[in-house]
Design a protein around this nucleic acid. Structure first.
Length: 621
RNA sequence: GGUUCCGUAGCUCAGCUGGAUAGAGCAACUGCCUUCUAAGCAGUAGGUCAUGCGUUCGAAUCGCAUCGGAAUCACCA
């Protein structure tokens, strides 16, 4: 249950209580309150307390105040009642901190109120700051590598791949907002028995079908023959069992499987015909993938192909053998003994000298470490491979003593499950990525028309539907904590109301409309002053203030869902205000200007958060 | 069987570095459009936070045990 914090979380400047230390003089109330509290307690009770025991939190909505300090940990030291302790500390804090205007005490909770002037200053200053929330760290430092997507080329992408792609993309964006140089990697698994299965089935039953002759998307066509292979394979197994073979024997001896294995050997020998067929069919798949990636808005800086890198690992294994990090088993295979680390023995090279999955991962890890000398290597891979990455990391850092081995981080995400269980390509129980996107866009279009939005021509309507449909899909996936498994029910379509992207997009569009009608530049409004900020507005300010912290936390935990949930909370808070507070119709100039600026800044922060999730926002909807 | 992860409203999810009366959305029900976009807002109803014990001034949150679910433990990837 303990949150796994990546090793490099420390590289992000957090103070002990998780708050950013001064970024471009950004106001950080919590830090100042914490420091002043330590001082005050020292002065009042002559006792030094650790910063950890000062736990500044946001005041709950039902009480007045902005920040709360529970004083229970100090009552033993003060030898006074919680109320009296809180009062003494509150008095001292008010004196030390000019931004604290007043405080109230409820039981042992000291609720501090930040002055209205301070909040106005915050708004006026930060709305000018285009980089609000972003932070400068290691901007010239070595890059962060993020490997994600990494598809097999024998079948089309499905909803599980979508989660992987969206997480990888969002994390790359979040790291980038933290001023890290990010390299997006894709390692395409373009060779192996699975591709040979598709190739063989196509050769046998394909009748020379191509994407051109069938009008089928390339990856779909190749996937079709992968399923075709499986059908034939199963039929042959059944036949063999009928003839009296055991199930295991049948599975090993089915002629079509033997043929596929033969094809793989010919591929490895460089057989011209096989290589040509392979190159052709892979190209179909790449053309198909490109469309899917485009529609998802996913890009890469560097694509590795396994066919080019799969031999690299053998060298590493041989070196490790020479260094006695590994050993040779009597049967000829090379293995690593990780029993001391609480893991098992693991095969690194087969007895016939060919490489297994981990051999290749060792090779590509060394390759990219050499090429980029990265500060971090993040792998976005499902949690079914936790064990594999545990082994990989231990081999590289412990057994082979690569210093960068420790900087590998497996971003392990949960599976997308259907009500019927896990998705399985071979059994056809998958939610296809292209179909799902198309369906979402269709729904968005239909909804837009139902709501009688007539301000759009055909092109605009399509673009709007794309933003809403794809946005809804991305948000649906990204709002869930990455490490948790999630459920997708195809019977119930993804919502467009409530805690969804369209809700957030809609609020943004409303603000845009408001600003268009105001017809002023919100950055150049005359300086206003108001004595009392109404509660609805203050709640928005408090939410806006939270954005930088949320972004830092999302970065250090590699968790985009924090930003999704933040955006939702912000928007809900804004809508409450919008519903019954006039902005343009406000006659008091100061108030009107304040509300306009508050709205503009809110829209800007919504944009920031959603951009980090890869979600586009229309200005009208 | 070993290891790891998970269990919060009918459903999908927040909250988990211990803090005040456990929150949203969907589904159900009730109000609010002659006023800045109703893809909205306000409200009703729905909970032994899997169970038990422990630590603590205080536990959904930390520890131990039990029950239930998932993943993994390949000369597959």
């Amino acid at each position: 249950m303990k949150k796994a914090v990546p090793w490099f979380a420390l590289a992000v400047p957090f103070s002990e209580n998780g708050i950013i230390i001064n970024n471009k003089e950004m106001m950080c109330f919590e830090t100042k309150i914490t420091e002043a509290s330590i001082e005050s307690i020292q002065e009042l009770y002559a006792i030094e307390v650790m910063p950890e025991s000062i736990n500044i939190q946001k005041t709950k909505k039902e009480f007045t105040g902005d920040f709360t300090l529970p004083v229970f940990p100090f009552v033993k030291l003060s030898r006074k009642s919680p109320e009296q302790t809180a009062d003494e500390i509150g008095k001292a804090l008010k004196e030390k901190l000019d931004f604290i205007e007043s405080y109230t005490i409820i039981k042992g909770f000291l609720n501090l109120s930040v002055s209205h002037r301070t909040w106005i200053d915050f708004l006026q200053k930060e709305i000018q700051n285009l980089a609000f929330g972003n932070i400068e760290t290691n901007s010239d430092g070595p890059p962060v590598l993020i490997e994600f997507s990494s598809p097999n080329t024998n079948k089309p992408l499905h909803l599980g791949h979508i989660r992987n792609n969206l997480l990888g993309d969002a994390i790359a964006r979040i790291m980038d907002a933290n001023k890290k140089k990010v390299i997006r990697l894709n390692l395409v698994n373009d060779r192996g028995i699975h591709i040979c299965k598709s190739m063989l089935a196509w050769q046998k039953f394909g009748a020379n079908e191509t994407p051109q002759t069938t009008g089928m998307k390339g990856d779909k066509l190749v996937g079709k023959y992968y399923v075709e292979f499986d059908k034939q394979y199963k039929a042959e197994i059944a036949e063999l069992i009928n003839q009296g073979k055991s199930k295991e024997d049948a599975e090993k001896q089915a002629p079509i499987l033997l043929e596929a294995q033969q094809m793989l050997r010919r591929w490895e020998e460089g057989d011209k015909d096989v290589r040509k067929l392979w190159a052709n069919m892979n190209q179909w798949v790449y053309d198909g993938f490109e469309q899917t990636y485009n529609n998802l808005g996913i890009t890469f800086d560097r694509v590795y192909y396994e066919s080019e890198t799969y031999l690299l690992g053998k060298e590493i294994v041989k070196e490790g053998l020479a260094k006695k990090a590994f050993y040779q088993h009597p049967d000829g295979s090379i293995r690593v003994d990780l029993t001391e680390e609480g893991l098992d023995e693991k095969i690194l090279l087969r007895s016939d000298g060919t490489s297994v999955y981990i051999t290749q991962d060792l090779g590509t890890a060394v390759l990219r470490a050499k090429e980029y000398q990265p500060q971090q290597m993040i792998y976005v891979v499902g949690n079914e491979q936790n064990y594999h990455f545990d082994v990989l990391k231990r081999i590289l850092s412990d057994k082979l003593s690569y210093d960068w081995g420790k900087r590998i981080y497996h971003l392990s995400y949960g599976m997308v499950e259907l009500p019927s269980g896990k998705m399985k390509s071979r059994e056809g129980t998958v939610v296809d990525a292209d179909d799902l996107m198309e369906e979402m866009i269709g729904m968005a279009k239909q909804k837009t028309e139902e709501l009688g939005k007539h301000d759009f021509n055909e092109v605009e309507l399509n673009e709007l539907a794309r933003m809403i449909g794809i946005g809804a899909l991305k948000y649906f996936i990204l709002k869930v904590d990455p490490k948790k498994n999630m459920l997708f029910n195809p019977e119930e379509s993804i919502d467009l109301n409530g805690n969804t992207a369209p809700f957030i997009q809609y609020t943004h569009a409303r603000i845009c409309s408001l600003l268009r009608k105001a017809g002023v530049n919100t950055l150049e409004l005359p300086n206003y002053n108001i004595d009392v900020i109404p509660e609805a507005e203050k709640e928005i300010l408090r939410m806006l203030y939270d954005y930088p912290v949320t972004l830092k936390q999302a970065a250090s935990e590699l968790n985009p869902s924090l930003l999704a949930n933040y955006a939702y909370e912000l928007v809900k808070t804004y809508n409450r205000f919008y519903q019954d507070t006039p902005v343009l119709k406000e006659m008091n100039d100061d108030l009107r200007h304040f509300r306009l600026q508050l709205s503009a800044f809110t829209a800007s922060v919504i944009r920031k958060a959603m951009n980090l999730l890869g979600i586009d926002l229309p200005e009208k909807m």
